[in-house]
Amino acid sequence: MEIYLPIAQMSVHWLIILSMGFVVGFLSGVFGVGGGFLLTPVLIFYGIPPGVAVATTASQIAGVTFSGVLTHWKRHSVDFKMGAVMIASGLVGSAIGVWLFAVLRRMGQAEFAISACYVVLLGTVGAIMLNESLRSFIARREGRSGYGRKPGQHHWLHGLPFKMRFRQSRLYISAIPPLVLGLIVGILSAVLGVGGAFVMVPAMIYLLRMPTNVVVGTSMLQVLFVSASSTILHAVDNFTVDVVLALVLILGGVFGVQFGVRAGAKLRGEELRLLMALLVLAVAVGLFYQLVVRPEDVYSLAAGSP
C-alpha cells in the first residue's frame, strides 16, 4: 500500500520505508550507533529529496535514541556533566549546520556536499576503526590484552586551559576538547542527518580517554538533544521535516533496535567493531563511486524546487 508524504509531497510504499527503518534500527542495535549515516543515503537513493531525508532522519534519531538514554541512565552509565558541556556546544553547532544546509541548498550543492562529507567522514572513521579492530584482533591472538587506557600517559590535550572535573568519567581535563567535539557533531547532525556517534564515540575513547562504560550513554544523551534541535530548526528554516515519513521510520526503527540489541549480545566486541568498520567503509565506497561515475543524465531536475 502506498502512503502519501504531506511534506515531501510524494507517495511511497510504506512497507519499504518501514523495512528501511527496521534494518537500520537493527544495525544500530547490533553496533550501538544511531544508524543515521545509513538511513540518510538510503532514503535519498529511494528518491526522497535530500533535504527531507536529512531533516526527517534527525527526528528518527531523536525518537530511537530516547529509550537508549533511559536504559543508560538506569545503569548510571551517563556522565551528565560531560553531556551538558557537549550539548551546549552541540546546539550551537546544529544551528550553524541548519543555516549552512540552507545556503548549500540554494547553491545547488547540498547533494554533492552531503555525499562528499559522507565519503570523507565514513572513509576516515571506517579506516581508523578497521585498523584498530585488526590490531586488537591480532593482539588477542598473540595473547596480549587489546587496547585500553594507559594510566599516566600525557597528551597535548591535557595542556589546555579551563579545566573541569568530570566525576563520572574520572577525568580532570580542559572543557575545550568536549566543547569542540560537541560543536562538530552538532554541525554534522544538521548537515548530514546523522547522530554523529560514529565520530563521537571514537573521539571520546581515544582523544578524551573517557572510560568505555560511560561513553555510549553520554554520547546518546548528546545525540538526543542535538538531533531534536536539528529537527526543530530544519522544520523552522527549511520546512523539510516530514512527520508521516518520521512516524513510519521510527516504528520500524524501534523494533529493529530491540532485535538488533539481542543479536548484538551474541557477538564479540572485536568482531562487532570489525563488522562495523567494514559496513562504514562499504557505504563510503558506494557513495564515492556515485560521485565519480558518469551519471545517466548530467542534467537533473532539483527535487522539491524551488
Binding site: S59, Q60, F66, S67, T231, I232, V243, V254, F255
Partner: peptide, 25 residues
C-alpha cells in the same frame, strides 16, 4: 501546520518520536 507554525510542528514531531521510542520499551 508545518508551514504556518513550523516551531510547534518541529517540537511535535520530536515529541512524537520520543513517545514512540519510549512506548516501545
Amino acid at each position: 501546520f508545518a508551514h504556518d507554525k513550523p516551531l510547534y510542528y518541529g517540537v511535535a514531531t520530536v515529541l512524537m518520536g520520543i513517545l514512540l521510542g519510549w512506548a516501545s520499551t
